[in-house]
């Protein structure tokens, strides 16, 4: 499982880190999400999928 962020698109809604703080953080200066674990472990799949869906601008992409 691999998570990618479209940095052009990210609008700092922070929904992703509210949903999966283990995997996402937010740089408040730049207003762009930070991916803490680009290849999160499989046991986080459910919460990562929820985080990807929770992004209002669809800036997160999950592969694999």
């Amino acid at each position: 499982m691999h998570v990618k962020l479209d940095t052009q698109n990210c609008q700092a809604y922070a929904n992703c880190l509210l949903t999966a703080p283990e995997v996402f953080d937010l740089d408040e200066e730049s207003g762009i999400a930070i991916i803490l674990q680009e290849n999160p472990p499989e046991n986080l799949r459910a919460v990562v999928e929820e985080a990807v869906r929770s992004c209002p601008v669809q800036a997160l992409i999950l592969e694999g």
């Binding site: 700092a12 809604y13 922070a14 880190l17 509210l18 703080p21 953080d25 937010l26 408040e28």
Partner: peptide, 11 residues
């Protein structure tokens, strides 16, 4: 406003 990370703890 302007402090999205602060919401984490409240949530």
């Amino acid at each position: 406003a302007g402090a999205p990370r602060a919401l984490l703890a409240y949530r």
